[in-house]
Every structure is written in structure tokens, then in C-alpha cells.
């Protein structure tokens, strides 16, 4: 029996993000191992019910004596590495989210452990993971060796399966000192509460024909009608100044695999397709019936997005 750790990510209001459940499922594998949930600056009691449903047997609250972990990712990683040593955890899983991949990479560097990020599959018995190379162009299998391995999993890539148990809440005080060499000074919130692209189940994206930043409103309206959907942009739309860089989907932007991807006015350039082709269902809306994207989508709607998208928003609303 091995001790396996799962770094549990919480949302701003201290709830367990539901994307953690797929990670716990992957860490559980075929069973037989002790699964530790590792919480940095989180409340074990608040998180216990959610994570034990998926098989976390021990839930560890990590804190530091005399240091504030929340404003220093370097300290968080040091504390996490110490907790892993203390509990003899030799495999660590976590979300390959913006926050997760940062902490996992810091921890791997401290422990000098092999690390694979953005994995979409895990085979514990064979010590292999699967992930993409060249965004969605090729699919890679990677074998990990070493005494300790760390693996970040793409949000929503692995389906969560319940495996209930009773979690024991524990606490661990790390002996880490703040070197004072780095500090998070401020959090700049985005202009509006956007759903993060890499964590969204549904994404609607605008290409260059969207024409302006203001016109993204039709996509935001549709995203709202779709539920918890994120809005993205093609590289052409970003480079034309219609959307900020962090909304770009593609091989040079964010690589996504939601269950539903709706591309509006996107022709289907190779680098864009590489960033979204692993979506479960792809819908294309484009005025040009010869756009390359129609050859590689599940549903195609030939029409002007300024007519089709508002009609879709309306259809979704009246269906609900």
C-alpha cells in the first residue's frame, strides 16, 4: 500500500472546487492505497464531506508556524513538500489549473521529482500518464520513474466517480521560514466575473468577424443562456484588439477540452483547432460555407453569427 496525496483546490468562498473530484478519482485508481487530501490554508471541516465522497481517507490541513502561507506561493510549496515527506507520500496529484500547476511545479522543483502537467489520463499500475503534445495535434504517453512523482490533471479531463469513505481530519504544521524574497501584494480582479476557459464545461468563442470588443456581448449573453459557460476568442480576434490575451484559445493561447465548444466566425486555422479539437462536441457557426471548420465539427450552422447567435440565445432561453 502506498500513500498518495491529492492537493485540494478551494474556491474563493472556501468550497471544494468540483473539478477536484476527477483528480481524486484518478489518484484512487484501482484502490488499495491510502489517499491523503492536502489543504493549504483551507478548512478541513468545511471540505470533509465533499472529498470523502470520492475516497479521501485522511484530510490534512497544512499551515505554517509563524508564516502566512496565503501570500507566498513559494512558502506554500515548501510546506506541501514537507507534508509529503512527513506523511511518506510518494505520489502527488492535483489540478493543472492556473493555481495548481504553479504550486505543483514549485513542489516538484523543491523535491527534484518528475512532473507531468496537463495530463488527461493516469495509469497508476503502469506508472504512465497521457497528455497532449503540440496542443491537440498529438497524444503522448509518458512513463514516470523515481521515488516520488507529481502529476497535474487537466480540469474536467477525468470523470469523477464516487468512492465514499470516512475522512479523518488532521493538521500539519510546517516548519518553513519566509525568506522575504517574494510576496503577493495585490489581487487585481478582472473587469467582470468571467468563467475561466481552462476550467469551463462549455465554451463559446468569437473569431475576427466579431469586429469589436463591444460585439462580444452577443457571446456573453449566449454564454449566460448556456449556463456556466466561458467566452473565448481566436488569435485573429485577440491580435485585432477585440479581446484580451487571456481569452485566446489555440496552441499559442489556452488549450481546452470542454464538453461543448461553439466556434462563431472562426475559420478553423491549424493552431486554433489544435487548441480545441479535443472538445467532446464542436459546433461551428460561420457565414462562409467553405470554411475549413465545417469539415471537422459535429454540427455546422451556415449563417451570420450576428443573427444565429442571438437566435441561439433565444432558443436556449425558451427551452429552459
Amino acid at each position: 500500500m502506498a500513500n498518495i496525496g491529492v492537493l485540494i483546490e478551494t474556491s474563493d468562498n472556501n468550497e471544494v472546487k468540483k473539478t477536484n473530484f476527477g483528480v481524486i478519482t484518478a489518484a484512487r485508481g484501482e484502490g488499495g492505497n491510502e489517499i491523503f487530501g492536502l489543504l493549504i490554508n483551507g478548512s478541513g471541516l468545511t471540505c470533509k464531506d465533499a472529498v470523502q465522497e470520492y475516497g479521501i481517507g485522511k484530510l490534512v490541513e497544512i499551515s505554517a508556524d509563524g508564516a502566512n502561507l496565503s501570500s507566498n506561493p513559494e512558502l506554500q510549496a515548501k510546506a506541501l513538500a514537507e507534508a509529503m515527506k512527513h506523511f511518506e507520500i510518494n505520489a502527488l496529484f492535483g489540478l493543472s489549473s492556473m493555481q495548481g500547476k504553479d504550486i505543483l511545479a514549485r513542489t516538484a522543483a523543491i523535491l527534484n521529482a518528475p512532473l507531468t502537467l496537463d495530463c488527461v489520463g493516469v495509469n497508476l499500475a503502469e506508472d504512465t500518464v497521457t497528455k497532449f503534445h503540440f496542443a491537440g495535434k498529438t497524444f503522448a504517453t509518458i512513463k514516470l520513474t523515481g521515488e516520488c512523482r507529481i502529476c497535474g490533471i487537466r480540469p474536467n479531463a477525468i470523470e469523477a466517480k464516487a468512492g465514499p469513505c470516512e475522512a479523518e481530519v488532521m493538521s500539519f504544521q510546517a516548519d518553513v521560514q519566509d525568506s522575504g524574497r517574494m510576496k503577493v501584494k495585490e489581487l487585481k480582479k478582472g473587469a467582470s466575473e468571467r468563467v475561466e476557459l481552462t476550467e469551463a464545461d462549455i465554451i463559446i468563442t468569437g473569431g475576427r468577424p466579431i469586429g469589436s470588443e463591444e460585439n462580444f456581448k452577443i457571446l456573453h449573453d449566449c454564454a449566460e443562456a448556456l449556463g456556466e459557460a466561458a467566452v473565448g476568442a481566436s488569435r485573429m480576434a485577440v491580435d485585432s484588439g477585440f479581446a484580451p490575451h487571456d481569452m485566446q484559445v489555440g496552441q499559442t493561447g489556452k488549450t481546452v477540452s470542454p464538453k461543448l465548444y461553439i466556434a462563431c466566425g472562426v475559420s478553423g486555422a491549424i493552431q486554433h483547432f489544435a487548441g480545441m479539437k479535443t472538445s467532446k462536441v464542436i459546433v461551428a457557426i460561420n457565414k462562409d460555407p467553405d470554411a475549413p471548420i465545417f469539415a471537422k465539427c459535429d454540427y455546422g450552422l451556415v449563417g451570420d453569427m450576428f443573427e444565429v447567435v442571438p437566435a441561439l440565445t433565444q432558443a436556449l432561453k425558451s427551452d429552459n
Partner: peptide, 9 residues
């Protein structure tokens, strides 16, 4: 993510 940024020194 989500258009937010951390300012780090």
C-alpha cells in the same frame, strides 16, 4: 485566470 491577476514583488 478569469481575467484576474496577482501583483507579485
Amino acid at each position: 485566470g478569469s481575467g484576474s491577476r496577482e501583483v507579485i514583488e
